[in-house]
Amino acid sequence: MGLNRRVRFFAGLRYRGGGPMWAWMLHRVTGVALILFVGTHVFASFFMQQTGNDFATTINIIYESWIFQVIVAFIVIFHGLNGMRIAILDIWPRFQMFQREALWLQWFIFIPVYGLTVVILIQHGLTGGY
């Protein structure tokens, strides 16, 4: 009797939790992406140093390209800032009455920090960096 309680991925995504829910989903995605990128980085450096072969060189060229760095910078800066917001709200629950404002503040910090990073990365990329 009755329908299974299982919540399918898209049913969950359709829930309109708003900004805070999106921030949490992005945090999880960027957390996993960080593991992959840090993994790739360690992996590539290891092979570069041990073998210096084409495979390692290719990974390093992709990894160090400015396009890739723009993506990595987003992931690192977002995960770091959002993680700090969560940590602060967890340590001092009374600040949670300003949780909406905390999310705004986070974007307020993110946009100039990330924007500046992107400008610098692109400048280097276009003036003969990588």
């Binding site: 939790g17 805070p20 949490w24 709200l89 967890d90 949670q96 949780q99």
Partner: peptide
């Protein structure tokens, strides 16, 4: 995970996450 969906949903405006 301090997601706040509960606080937003509560019709009694309880600060659930807090």
């Amino acid at each position: 995970h301090t997601i706040f969906n509960c606080t937003i949903a509560c019709p009694r405006e309880i600060q659930v996450t807090t």
